[in-house]
């Protein structure tokens, strides 16, 4: 889990596997990001090597938490990363989780100026 910024927005990048063992780490990291809630948050799964159903369930929970906090969430999952993208598509997570295929699809945040200080 790595903090940074993507498309001018605060971002968490998930490296390695997002599975039963590591889902709690994502939960903790997101809780940290959401207090206090930023205007938007990017979750970058581009370098994520693997995601199982527990990881997917955590993504859904993250999406609900973000929505409840009024945070615009963007989850980046490129089609080239089939290990993650195929799971997302089979589960149709896009019904709940705002998925984009690349950071370029995220609306620029320049007007909001909310990159990390």
């Amino acid at each position: 889990m790595e903090r940074g910024s993507v498309a001018g927005r605060p971002a968490l990048t998930v490296r390695g596997e997002l599975d039963l063992a590591t889902a709690p780490v994502l939960a903790q990291a997101v809780d940290g990001e959401l207090s206090p809630p930023p205007r938007s948050l990017v979750l970058d799964l581009t370098p994520t090597a693997f995601m199982d159903s527990s990881g997917a369930r955590e993504l859904v929970r993250v999406a609900r938490k973000a929505a409840a906090a009024g945070v615009a969430l963007h989850v980046v999952a490129p089609h080239e990363n089939s290990a993650v993208r195929l799971t997302i598509d089979l589960l149709e997570l896009g019904a709940v989780v705002p998925i984009v295929a690349s950071a370029a699809e995220i609306p620029a945040a320049s007007a909001e100026r909310e990159a990390r200080p």
Binding site: E17, L20, A21
Partner: peptide, 13 residues
């Protein structure tokens, strides 16, 4: 088998 991190640690993976 569930990993939790607190404070500054290496990345989960």
């Amino acid at each position: 088998r569930q990993l939790r991190l607190l404070g500054r640690t290496p990345p989960a993976e």
